[in-house]
Write a protein that binds this DNA or RNA. Structure first.
Lengths: 149, 149
DNA sequence: CAGTATCCGAGAGGATACTG
DNA sequence: CAGTATCCTCTCGGATACTG
């Protein structure tokens, strides 16, 4: 369970096999999962995976449409801390900073990228489902929705 | 791009191939992506996928540790609206309601489940990366972190 | 059992301005 | 260019209480 309290080995033993469980509220993996699936993290790592090579700050901002400087900086810091991206600074003027995926970052990014592909291709079905659902909203209270007994 | 404004076919044509792009702020797929990767949706559909069969309200609440009645109800409603789960009511006393994945829901759940598996198995590495990162915080301002010029 | 209604606080996140 | 700092808003989501 990898409890945050009665912790059997969170302290520096990365080789050990944990029985991590994101479904448990107090497992550390839950927090990591929340971050990864956060508003911006997923899009950023997916953008990096899709690009293949490292990207510069401004390039990521351009690709991840709608993100603010503040959130980009903050989110990059977070996923860097979690070992998913590496930050490389070239001390030139003007500064040149690149962000690239680590091996861990790639592993994480792959299912996210797959998810994005599925959502994009299934979007019409989702929109249609929403339309049907909302339409049925008006049709309420007239004996429906029951499973056959 | 599937703009929400100059919309070329969001109105009831699920067969048509869209050029949906989740990286575009105004593409409808962005919203769907945000919902799917929301705080609870991913855990719920993953729980349903893992279980195989439909689950009852209380069973999901038990599995998705920490979720409140309110958020479970709200999130189920949302993903039902998006066509990922089906709600089946058996009009008995006490009421018996089951939630099961649709085909679409399964497609979505699969990469999420894969992501969960990766995070759980890589958790030790993430924790170690965090430790190293935080440790380096103190080691600042002494000429480091530069890429070789 | 399976929800809905209401209230409320914390924090995610946007806008703007400033810096190395 | 690549950020940080400050402020402020607004949504998410928890607690609690009630219903069919």
């Amino acid at each position: 369970m990898t409890d945050l309290d009665s912790d059997p080995g969170l302290d520096g033993n990365p080789g050990r096999a944990f029985d991590a469980d994101v479904f448990s509220r107090r497992c550390a993996s839950r927090g990591v999962f929340q971050h990864v699936t956060g508003r911006w993290s997923a899009l950023i790592v997916a953008a990096l995976l899709e690009n293949g090579d490292p990207l510069r700050f401004a390039a990521i901002r351009r690709r991840v449409d709608g993100i603010s400087d503040r959130m980009l900086s903050q989110t990059l810091g977070q996923i860097e801390r979690e070992g998913m991206v590496v930050r490389t600074v070239h001390s030139t003027i003007p500064p040149h900073v690149e962000y690239g995926l680590t091996a861990l970052g790639q592993k994480i990014a792959e299912p996210l990228s797959a998810l994005i592909g599925i959502i994009e291709s299934e979007l019409p079905h989702v929109l249609e489902a929403q339309r049907l659902f909302d339409e049925a909203e008006g049709t309420r209270a007239r004996g429906l929705h029951d499973a056959p007994s």
